[in-house]
Computed example of a mutant assay.
Amino acid sequence: MATSLAPTESGSMPSASGRASSGIPAGRWIWRCVSLLACLGLWQIAAQYKASLGFVTMANVPAPTDVAPAFWHLLHSPKLPMHLFSSITRVLVGFCAAAVVGIGFGLAIGRYRAFEDTLLPSLEVLRPIPAVAWIPLSILMFPSSEVSMMFITFVGALFPVLLNTIHGVEGVDPRLVATARSLGTRRLSLFSEVILPGAAPAIVTGLSIGMGTAWFCLITAEMIAGQYGIGYFTWESYTLQNYADIVVGMLLIGALGMGSSVLVKRLGLALMPWYRLSEVRR
């Protein structure tokens, strides 16, 4: 029933074969690699010649030729596994908790006005508060610094998941709900076979955004309260004036955040056989 009633991205009924997903052509991959190499080249030139525009200067920014040896040194450092393990563990715990709470509350708020009137006002007040503002309070709330940093990642990932889930539920075609009810679908089955599949694309988008936000918030927390982690390594490099290591930490954060967000999106699409992204851009 989920396959027949779940809406597509445009809100219309899907075709029998679904949307065909096509890979990226080789020409586009080549173009992307060329653009990345061009950015690295501009970075090298600007740092090597200490380019300055008045309001921004590259005089103290390390060049890629300085960052590469620092990255190689970090790969052989005995502290790297501990940094990675600490950061990944904190992100996964906070993200999983945010996924459970965000999806659960989002389904309830998006479907029932009583939950919307009860929960949404308080959540909307908390939503604009930046994660860094939660750090002092989280330290006071939780005796363990590890739990406080996991809480920061939870806060950062919660609201993208929550809002996308709410919008996904509200965007389900009412005709699908009416059709399911006319076929005798009960309330629990209505959620599992119509509402949840219909809102799934928006939920996956929220999870992907939330994963990236969790990394952003974790790094902020680790800079202040951590002893291990990529954020702590980046901030420690700044205090020790190891400028190349700062860029290494930043690039590692970006790679981990991008990779985990892509992984969440890919897993989400694999779990939605009734939904396929169509290639509409030129």
Rank of each mutant, 00 (worst) to 15 (best):
234 T>N: 06
189 S>E: 12
186 R>A: 14
272 M>H: 11
57 T>W: 14
172 V>M: 12
179 T>M: 15
102 G>Q: 07
145 S>G: 08
123 L>V: 01
119 L>E: 05
241 Q>I: 01
125 V>S: 09
204 V>S: 10
180 A>Y: 00
6 A>W: 05
62 P>F: 15
135 I>T: 06
215 W>E: 01
162 L>D: 07
123 L>N: 05
54 G>L: 11
224 I>M: 15
212 G>K: 02
20 A>N: 02
102 G>M: 11
140 L>T: 01
66 D>Y: 04
139 I>Q: 11
240 L>A: 10
6 A>H: 06
191 F>G: 09
269 L>G: 08
244 A>N: 00
60 N>E: 14
232 Y>C: 03
254 G>L: 02
40 L>F: 15
185 T>M: 15
1 M>Y: 11
92 L>K: 05
189 S>P: 04
47 A>I: 00
249 G>E: 07
250 M>C: 11
61 V>Q: 12
60 N>T: 03
241 Q>W: 07
102 G>P: 00
236 E>H: 06
37 L>F: 06
143 P>F: 08
174 P>T: 01
105 F>L: 15
219 I>S: 14
122 S>K: 00
161 V>E: 08
3 T>R: 14
189 S>K: 12
25 P>Q: 08
167 H>G: 10
23 G>C: 04
147 V>K: 13
101 V>G: 14
196 L>M: 12
16 A>W: 04
232 Y>W: 09
177 V>I: 09
122 S>N: 12
145 S>I: 01
276 R>V: 05
165 T>F: 12
64 P>K: 07
178 A>S: 03
151 F>I: 02
64 P>R: 09
44 Q>P: 01
200 A>T: 01
229 G>M: 08
204 V>D: 05
6 A>N: 04
90 R>L: 13
229 G>R: 03
142 F>H: 10
154 F>S: 05
149 M>V: 02
230 I>C: 13
149 M>Q: 11
9 E>Y: 12
124 E>P: 00
183 L>G: 07
263 L>N: 06
166 I>Y: 13
152 I>W: 07
129 I>W: 08
100 V>W: 10
47 A>H: 07
162 L>A: 10
24 I>K: 14
196 L>A: 11
195 I>Y: 13
213 T>F: 12
